Structure formats: C-alpha cells, structure tokens
Computed example of a mutant assay.
Amino acid sequence: MPARLARVAVKLRAAASRSGPVMFGADAHLFRIGPALSEDAVVGFEERHGVTLPPDYRGFITTVGHGGPGRFGGAGPFYGLLPIDDWDWALRGDPDITMLAQPFPAEPGRVYDDWLAEAAPGENDEPYRGTLALGHQGCDDLSLLVLGGPARGRVVETRPGKQGPRFTPDPDFLSWYERWLDAVLAGERHFR
C-alpha cells in the first residue's frame, strides 16, 4: 500500500504541473488537494458512523490529501473529491448517522428492472445507504465509495432512471483514482 500511495502522490504532482487543466472538471480544483487528515480525525469519523473505511481510501486521505479548495473539494475525477464530511450527498432523504454502516443494496453485474423500487421498496428506505460520496460528476450524478455490503471498497456511479448505479471496472478506490490520473497525464479530456 505505501508504494501505491507514493506512486499516486507523484502522479498527482505531475498532473498539477501540467499547463492548464485539460480534463473535464479540472478547472474546479486545478489538481490541488487539501492536507491529509490526522489518524484521530479518521478514527473519530469511523466511530461516529460505526464503519471502518476501506484501507486504500483511508491511506489516501491520511497520506496524500483530503478535500481541497474547489467548490466540490480537491483534485479528483470530474469536479474533484469531496471532503469526508460531505459523505451524505447521495442520500435522497435526511442524513442519518447510521446510513454508512448499512449494506449497499446494489451488486456488480446485477441488472435491475427498476433500481429504486428494488433497492428502496419502503417509503423511508434509502437506496444509497452504505455509500460515501466521493465526488460530483455534474447533472446530479455522483461517484460513491461503497462501505458496506458485497461491493465494499468499490466505486459506483449514480445514474438516473431505472437501470441503477454503474460500478466502475476498478477493484478499489485507489485503482479508480490512479486510472483517472493516468488519463489526465495521457492528455485525455474525459474520464470514464
């Protein structure tokens, strides 16, 4: 893990040194990221919410950085990485501190006839329980980190309509983030 984090930090510095943002959304954060969180701050968050963050995400926010100067946070895909305290952006109802500890109802590869009806059949059910909002993609779409359930550690993207969320091909947060950095360094304009 330390080698992966160091490699990501080097790539992030290289992305920040490029002239002008080229990737969609980069003008919101300019490849800047806020300072890393302390171990005490992360432990406090985990205890308040009854969760254990995936090791790669935890390592990133305690080593590389967290949040940042943009309206939607710091250097990251689309409009940037949200601060951890904005975990509840995907929730449809009022935030409940127990939401992160619940299993996320979506599974990779599963096809839904009607995502919301299947994931949240009750009036007060929350379809995005068990997820932490990572970043805003625009048009109300978000990137989320799954904290509970069979897809724990994976990144999923919200989608309007009946098809439900889309899992990225990445096995974990750090792979997703590094894939974005690789796209930036290759001069790509969009990330998927």
Rank of each mutant, 00 (worst) to 15 (best):
Ile61His: 05
Leu116Asp: 09
Ile97Arg: 15
Leu134His: 07
Pro55Arg: 12
Gly34Glu: 09
Glu126Cys: 07
Gly122Ala: 13
Arg48Asp: 07
Glu39Trp: 12
Val43Ser: 13
Leu142Tyr: 10
Phe60Val: 00
Glu39Arg: 15
Pro54His: 05
Ala90Met: 13
Pro54Trp: 04
Phe72Lys: 09
Tyr57Glu: 01
Asp125Met: 09
Arg48Ala: 13
Trp87Ser: 12
Ala75Trp: 03
Ser38Asp: 10
Glu118Gln: 14
Leu91Phe: 10
Asp85Phe: 14
Asp94Ser: 15
Gly68Cys: 00
Ile97Cys: 14
Ala133Pro: 01
Ala101Gly: 15
Leu91Glu: 04
Ala120Thr: 01
Pro54Met: 04
Gly122Trp: 02
Pro105Ile: 04
Ala41Asp: 09
Gly44His: 02
Asp86Arg: 15
Asp86Tyr: 13
Cys139Arg: 10
Pro69Tyr: 02
Gly73Ala: 01
Glu46Asp: 12
Glu118Asn: 06
Phe60Gly: 02
Ala120Gly: 07
Thr98Lys: 13
Ala75Met: 07
Ile97Tyr: 13
Ala117Tyr: 03
Pro127Ser: 03
Glu39Ser: 15
Gly76Val: 02
Asp40Cys: 07
Gly68Asp: 00
Gly65Phe: 02
Val51Ser: 06
Arg71Ser: 05
Ser38Ile: 05
Gly138Asp: 03
Arg129Leu: 09
Phe45Tyr: 11
Arg92His: 09
Asp40Lys: 15
Leu82Glu: 08
Thr131Met: 05
Pro35Asn: 11
Ser38Gln: 11
Leu37Glu: 13
Ala36Asn: 10
His66Asp: 06
Leu82Val: 04
Pro108Phe: 07
Ile97Lys: 14
Phe45Glu: 08
Pro54Ile: 01
Pro83Tyr: 06
Trp87Asp: 11
Gly122Met: 05
Pro108His: 04
Asp96Phe: 14
Trp89His: 14
Gly135Cys: 09
Arg48His: 05
Pro83Gln: 08
His66Arg: 08
Gly138Trp: 03
Ser38Arg: 14
Trp115Cys: 10
Glu126Ile: 05
Ala101Gln: 11
Asp96Trp: 14
Gly109Trp: 03
Ala133Thr: 09
Gly70His: 02
Glu107Asp: 04
Phe78Pro: 00
Phe60Asn: 00
Gly34Val: 02
Gly67Tyr: 00
Pro83Met: 04
Thr63Ile: 00
His66Glu: 07
Pro83Ala: 11
Leu132Gln: 06
Pro77Tyr: 07
Gly93Leu: 10
Gly76Met: 02
Ala106Thr: 01
Glu126Gly: 07
His136Ala: 04
Ala117His: 03
Phe104Thr: 05
Leu81Cys: 11
Glu126Asp: 00
Pro69Phe: 02
